[in-house]
């Protein structure tokens, strides 16, 4: 675990939390599809890079 990696993961988590909180906010505003899509995007923004970092050879 290098420093770069830790920093990258921290930033990813921050992004995930921030954007998913926006998703929740949208959901609460009665925009169900929008909220779900935002949550999906924020999940993708967490999972995809992590997959690239850890699982791709």
């Amino acid at each position: 675990m290098s420093f770069d990696l830790i920093a990258a993961i921290l930033i990813l988590i921050w992004i995930f939390i921030y954007s998913s909180s926006y998703g929740v906010w949208t959901w609460n505003k009665k925009n169900r599809i929008g909220g779900a899509a935002v949550l999906l995007v924020s999940l993708a923004a967490l999972v995809f890079p992590l997959y690239l970092i850890f699982f791709r050879t």
């Binding site: 921030y18 954007s19 926006y22 949208t26 925009n31 929008g34 899509a37 935002v38 995007v41 995809f48």
Partner: peptide, 28 residues
């Protein structure tokens, strides 16, 4: 387009996640 399609109110919170996705995609 994303904002307009889903009738969201703000696009700014989406900048970072989309940037991350595009960054990862570009390195794929």
């Amino acid at each position: 387009t994303f904002k307009k399609t889903l009738k969201l109110e703000y696009y700014k919170p989406l900048i970072m996640p989309f940037a991350v996705i595009i960054f990862s995609l570009s390195l794929t």
